[in-house]
Design a protein around this nucleic acid. Structure first.
Ligand code: MN
Ligand code: MN
Ligand code: ZN
Ligand code: ZN
Lengths: 141, 141
DNA sequence: AATAAAATTGTAATCATTACAAAATAGTAT
DNA sequence: ATACTATTTTGTAATGATTACAATTTTATT
């Protein structure tokens, strides 16, 4: 899903989140950058524009967004939680060289899920690790 | 892959791990139980049999196993790392009721990985969250 | 404007993980 | 077998990310 053209204030309201300045800016950062940042990255990137910003607010806000279902945590590396404002089912690829996390369009519909009969699937997550196209080509030079 | 009938001592040696008593017991626990435990569970389950066991040793040992590629970390929940001695590609399902983590046989070969041309995939991970068969049936009563 | 409710902030507390050095164990040479 | 060396384990202290909490600020309501 492409959130880049939504009205963020309205989107937050529609999802039962009062759009304070900090919440707007944090969600806007996720939507604009699509870089699956962690808490610290969000804080560091915003604190210059919002000098009074507290890291606690970033934690609180992401927790709220998670509860309201408008962000999802991306778990690829141990001891690193990244966040994604795109909550539709899609895959991720993390490059071991440049550390970047790419989105991967996915069609899981025809996947054989042998052994999951009578299981209720509420969430599906898939991710890959390896070397991205850019780093692969750069290394080949 | 089924590790239940291997000679654990030999398996560790083959993978460049000296089979100390603690390492044997920790790996044996993973192989025998297949429950994808976290550090604390492993420690709690073994400390009665090995009263001198230190949690640091559990951390050290799992770190070594990871480096040697004979365990993989399972990341499903935020702030919880579980470990799996089965390092072949397979999926997992975590039940939100009983918290159990199930193995899911997977065939990712025919999955459409649009957008990954020229990417080198070294690891593939997939997991689901929801309600397991047992809890689903129990709830239906 | 006064009051109440909600959100933000800064600091302190917590807790999992890591660093580190001492003790114990295993391996090797004499 | 003994002395010596290397490796592993252990317990404690340090680290660092996250959470708890109360004070302050902001927003909403009367
Ligand atoms: Mn994404
Ligand atoms: Mn498994
Ligand atoms: Zn890269
Ligand atoms: Zn269950």
């Amino acid at each position: 899903m492409d959130l880049s053209n939504i009205n963020i204030e309205q989107y937050l309201r529609n999802n039962d989140v009062k759009p304070s300045y900090q919440r707007l800016k944090i969600f806007e950062y996720l939507v604009k950058h699509k870089n699956h940042p962690n808490v610290d990255t969000i804080y560091q990137e915003l604190v210059s524009a919002i000098p009074t910003l507290s890291k606690t607010t970033v934690y609180n806000t992401l927790k709220l967004f998670l509860e309201k279902g408008i962000v999802q945590p991306i778990l690829i590396e141990e001891n690193e939680i990244r966040y994604d404002a795109d909550v539709t089912v899609h895959g991720h690829f993390k490059c071991e060289i440049c550390q970047e996390v790419y989105d991967i369009p996915l069609d899981l519909s025809d996947m054989k899920t042998e052994g999951l009969e009578k299981f209720i699937i509420k969430e599906s997550h898939i991710y890959f690790k390896g070397i991205c196209k850019r780093c692969n080509i750069a290394n080949a030079q």
